[in-house]
């Protein structure tokens, strides 16, 4: 018995400041530091509107990162999201041009994104295809379909879309945000609710921790594996809609490489690429870090925007190294 009561003390010390929160805390510190650096260096940087703009400019990326968080939490990856964003802008633009009512166009976009996700999820679960390969196929398919619809950019003239895109909501302190931001934040809230308070969400974590264990525990691993890709597909479609509000056009070359931004945001946000550890809140902060870096570089004015990529690359490396360290610490226990 002595051997069994001792861990009580151990667990107190080690799980009160749980190592699982460490990456998120680290991300938040990085965000505060980068933002602080910007505030010190540039006049007018530390304003409410700059923060609001971070959300406005990255609302679609937040939604994308939320879907990606689900997938990565199970230990998977979804490379198709950028292409699905492009496809969504295309479907929206094309259907609106054909005279569909806005609500029907939105529905069509969300349905096609979810269906694509379902297809990839089934491929991964039923045929045991590597997520990397299945979603790579999905990526090519979605990107290709864009150009089947049209090779050129189609602009969106639908009044409803235009209204949502340009209308702003005033917050106290004369800070304006768009509807996109509200939608993105709602998605984050729903995602956090699902991940932490439902059996589906906890099973997502269980599958990421150990899929075979989760199966032997009698959990519905198959449903979850397919489900996260459907969620990611849905989020990509929704992000596509937000992106079309942002760009007011549909184009097959929109959002090229955006899947990598989403993955970077999730990883910088502290989610373990191997799965099982991470929070949507972290992914949001991850997006904000990426956005802040971009904002600083645009404030600087003289730097090429490619510096954003370099800084993000360095951050990614640092965070992956941090994850390894935490894993080692756990193994040593």
């Amino acid at each position: 018995m002595t051997a069994l009561t001792q861990p009580r003390f151990l667990s107190r010390v080690q799980s009160r400041v749980p190592s699982r929160f460490l990456p998120v805390i680290a991300t938040f510190v990085v965000f505060v530091l980068t933002f602080g650096a910007g505030a010190v260096r540039y006049e007018g940087f530390a304003s409410g509107q700059v923060i609001a703009n971070l959300f406005i400019d990255n609302a679609f990326l937040i939604v994308l990162a939320v879907g990606m968080t689900f997938v990565i939490l199970t230990g998977g990856i979804d490379l198709s999201v950028g292409a699905v964003v492009a496809l969504s802008t295309m479907i929206a633009a094309a259907t609106l041009e054909a005279g569909w009512p806005a609500w029907l166009a939105v529905l069509a976009v969300l349905a096609s994104g979810s269906t694509l996700g379902l297809g990839m999820g089934l491929m991964i679960h039923k045929l045991r295809v590597q997520p990397f390969i299945a979603t790579l196929a999905g990526m090519f398919l979605a990107r290709g379909l864009c150009f089947v619809i049209s090779i050129d950019s189609i602009s969106i003239k639908d009044p409803a879309f235009r209204t949502i895109a340009t209308e702003t909501v005033m917050l106290p302190g004369k800070v304006a945000i768009t509807y996109s931001v509200l939608i993105a934040l709602a998605v984050v809230a729903v995602a956090a609710y699902v991940l932490h308070l439902t059996r589906f969400g906890r099973t997502v974590y269980a599958v990421g921790g150990s899929e075979s264990s989760a199966r032997l525990m009698g959990l519905a691993t198959g449903r979850v594996t397919v489900g996260v890709y459907v969620i990611s597909g849905f989020c990509s479609a929704l992000a596509g809609l937000l992106f079309s509000f942002y760009m007011l056009s549909g184009y097959g070359l929109h959002a090229v490489g955006m899947e990598l931004d989403a993955i970077a945001a999730v990883v910088v946000g502290g989610t373990l690429l191997a799965g099982g550890m991470g929070y949507v809140g972290g992914s949001v902060v991850g997006v904000l870090v990426l956005g802040t870096v971009q904002t600083i570089i645009s404030f600087e004015g003289t730097l090429s925007s490619w510096w954003t990529r370099i800084v993000i690359g360095v951050l990614l490396l640092a965070f992956i190294a941090l994850q390894r360290l935490i894993l080692y610490r756990q193994r040593d226990l």
């Binding site: 699982r20 906890r202 974590y205 269980a206 990421g208 921790g209 150990s210 075979s212 264990s213 989760a214 032997l216 525990m217 099982g276 550890m277 756990q330």
Partner: peptide, 8 residues
């Protein structure tokens, strides 16, 4: 082997 999820 303990078939549980250590992350939960």
């Amino acid at each position: 082997e303990v078939n549980l999820c250590t992350n939960l």
